[in-house]
Amino acid sequence: LELEYDRPLRPAVEYLADGRYAAYKVVDGHPIGTGPYVMKEEGQELLLTPNNNYRGSEPRFSEARIVVALPGAAEAKLRAGELDALLFAEKYNLPGCDGASEGVRCVFGQESAHLVVYLNGLAGRFFNQHNLRLAMQTLIARKLEESGLPKDLKADHLSRDDQSFLPFQAGRLSGAEAAELIQAGQKHIPDLIAASKRDPIRLVSGRECQWLISLLRDAGVTVSTNSGKIDFSRILGMVYKTYEPDIVYIGYSVNNSDPDGLYHNLGRKGAIYSPIEARESVQDLFEEGRAIMSQALLAPHYEKTARAILKEVPYVHLGYTPCGVAYKPDRVKVSDNFVNRNTNQITIFEPR
């Protein structure tokens, strides 16, 4: 296999090592890949059986079925034995995940998703003013430090972190430098409060967001009465088409270990990029960073990028949430050699 690029693209090496550039072909309208299982749709279920042509270790299950379990019924089905495991368990806030239940166990990965507060910086919008973005970043960081995590963020298993680059990634700043950059908005908080009185801020989310609305109002910021939680399908339309809200409280995935992993959100041609968070200097730095091939040059460049993110504030970075699975320990176990940031794959399990 030979691939030729018209310009340097460092992340391609990592993409080739995982599923992003996975090889497949379409036969009779169906994609044929190279993974450990063959997939077949059976009504509302997905049946997985071993791929006899798989080149890796032999699949651990002779058969596996993936079904949709709605939040209201998922826990009961798991405890009743109708399900052996539940992926994305962090979204269900299961009581057994704290170790109190012997019938259910949970495993959480490391940082799986960024939790952020988008600030709409489009022309004519509230946060088009740079000083107001700086003020909002400072205000949220300060209030969370003073009051601690609200219960909704604790339920999300949030690991509080103001920085968009992970602790082990090129681009990670010292805590002291990051704190100094965030503090730069302190002098603009009165301007933020005054501006919101003239033009109340609209805040929306597909997540529980009353804690954030209350945090802002308690600090003197005026939040509009049409703010609050709405259906996630409407959020997508607002983020990518209509750009109506001033603030969108949302999460997006940790892409990979390369610092270019943030490109899919902050890059000019990123897969989930939205114009509301476009900051030209940040985008330019991500474009330049993709072409860097020398490891020695990565840290200086992405530290510059990290400073630009905290100075231009495309969003306020609240921290990271993990991805988790819940399972019945009498039926399955988690593989001892499992290492992954996103624990949302059936391949982490072995039969008991």
Rank of each mutant, 00 (worst) to 15 (best):
residue 264 H to M: 12
residue 269 K to W: 15
residue 333 K to N: 04
residue 309 I to Q: 02
residue 330 D to A: 06
residue 334 V to R: 08
residue 277 E to M: 14
residue 327 Y to L: 05
residue 269 K to P: 14
residue 271 A to Q: 12
residue 263 Y to G: 08
residue 295 Q to A: 14
residue 285 L to M: 11
residue 282 V to W: 04
residue 294 S to F: 08
residue 317 H to T: 05
residue 267 G to W: 07
residue 283 Q to S: 08
residue 325 V to G: 07
residue 288 E to P: 01
residue 319 G to W: 00
residue 297 L to I: 04
residue 305 T to L: 09
residue 314 P to T: 01
residue 284 D to T: 09
residue 301 H to K: 10
residue 291 A to I: 02
residue 262 L to H: 00
residue 302 Y to T: 01
residue 265 N to W: 15
residue 308 A to I: 04
residue 268 R to N: 15
residue 323 C to E: 11
residue 287 E to S: 08
residue 289 G to T: 07
residue 293 M to D: 13
residue 324 G to M: 12
residue 263 Y to V: 09
residue 319 G to I: 07
residue 329 P to S: 09
residue 290 R to M: 07
residue 333 K to R: 13
residue 330 D to F: 10
residue 318 L to V: 03
residue 331 R to D: 10
residue 293 M to S: 14
residue 268 R to D: 09
residue 276 I to D: 12
residue 299 A to G: 06
residue 294 S to H: 08
residue 319 G to A: 12
residue 294 S to Q: 12
residue 293 M to H: 10
residue 276 I to Q: 12
residue 316 V to Y: 07
residue 263 Y to W: 07
residue 337 N to G: 12
residue 315 Y to H: 15
residue 306 A to H: 06
residue 311 K to R: 15
residue 288 E to Y: 09
residue 275 P to K: 13
residue 309 I to H: 01
residue 281 S to W: 09
residue 274 S to W: 08
residue 285 L to P: 01
residue 273 Y to N: 14
residue 275 P to N: 10
residue 310 L to P: 13
residue 317 H to L: 06
residue 308 A to V: 01
residue 302 Y to N: 01
residue 330 D to N: 15
residue 268 R to V: 08
residue 267 G to Q: 03
residue 300 P to R: 14
residue 289 G to V: 00
residue 281 S to N: 12
residue 318 L to S: 03
residue 325 V to A: 11
residue 270 G to N: 03
residue 268 R to T: 13
residue 328 K to D: 11
residue 266 L to R: 10
residue 264 H to R: 07
residue 315 Y to M: 06
residue 322 P to K: 03
residue 324 G to T: 03
residue 319 G to N: 03
residue 303 E to W: 13
residue 310 L to G: 06
residue 307 R to W: 03
residue 309 I to N: 00
residue 285 L to D: 01
residue 335 S to K: 12
residue 326 A to E: 00
residue 303 E to G: 09
residue 311 K to V: 05
residue 296 A to C: 10
residue 316 V to D: 03
residue 274 S to N: 07
residue 301 H to I: 02
residue 299 A to I: 02
residue 310 L to R: 08
residue 302 Y to I: 04
residue 329 P to W: 13
residue 279 R to V: 00
residue 285 L to H: 11
residue 300 P to F: 01
residue 297 L to S: 15
residue 330 D to Q: 12
residue 300 P to E: 04
residue 328 K to V: 08
residue 262 L to D: 01
residue 307 R to H: 02
residue 291 A to K: 13
residue 323 C to P: 05
residue 335 S to M: 11
residue 290 R to W: 04
residue 263 Y to T: 03
residue 310 L to Y: 02
residue 333 K to Y: 06
residue 295 Q to C: 09
residue 314 P to S: 06
residue 319 G to K: 00
residue 325 V to T: 07
residue 305 T to G: 01
residue 273 Y to W: 13
residue 277 E to R: 15
residue 268 R to G: 05
residue 319 G to Y: 04
residue 322 P to W: 00
residue 265 N to G: 14
residue 321 T to Q: 12
residue 320 Y to E: 06
residue 315 Y to N: 13
